[in-house]
Design a binder for these strands. Structure first.
Length: 141
DNA sequence: GCCAACGTTGGC
DNA sequence: GCCAACGTTGGC
């Protein structure tokens, strides 16, 4: 039951897996998510959905847009079959990265999960928030 | 089933 | 390096 195309944001520490690595590899299995709420978001992703790629720790900025190329399947890195992974491919880098500070300074983005639930690693973004971040990154949808 | 202790994440 | 947020674990 596929709904409307979704917009998402995933976090990664660049030292663990960076946007540059995703660009170089052209696709990746987004595995290792071990949080129930994040898992439910992975399960709701649809092929072709846009996924903002955020660097946590070093950088703390949204750096690019990825696309879901394969919907949720059992995470091959998990012992427990309940955990899920999706496949992602890079779409394009933002013309200008959008920092967490800039997002926090933007009133219309005060309610997004990136700000309100700092530990969540996979989250949906309302379309308006997704578009706002893209415009802050001087990038067209 | 409750809750204290502990571990992890991630911003500062 | 510290601390807040929050998930998990284990004793009862």
């Amino acid at each position: 039951m596929a709904g409307a195309p979704g917009e998402w944001l995933v976090k990664s520490e660049p030292g663990s897996y960076s946007w540059q690595q995703l660009v170089a590899e052209k696709h990746t299995c987004w595995s290792g998510v071990r949080n129930p709420l994040a898992r439910s978001h992975l399960a709701a992703m649809r092929k072709g959905d846009a996924v903002l790629f955020y660097h946590s720790g070093e950088g703390k900025e949204v750096v690019g847009i990825a696309r879901v190329t394969k919907e949720a399947y059992p995470d091959p890195t998990a012992d427990d079959a309940k955990w899920l992974a999706v496949d992602l491919a890079p779409d394009r880098a933002l013309a200008q990265p959008v920092s967490l500070a800039a997002i926090k300074a933007e009133k219309s983005l005060a309610d997004i999960a990136l700000v309100r639930m700092s530990r969540l690693s996979v989250m949906p973004l309302p379309r308006a928030a997704f578009d706002k971040i893209l415009s802050m990154g001087k990038t067209k949808r």
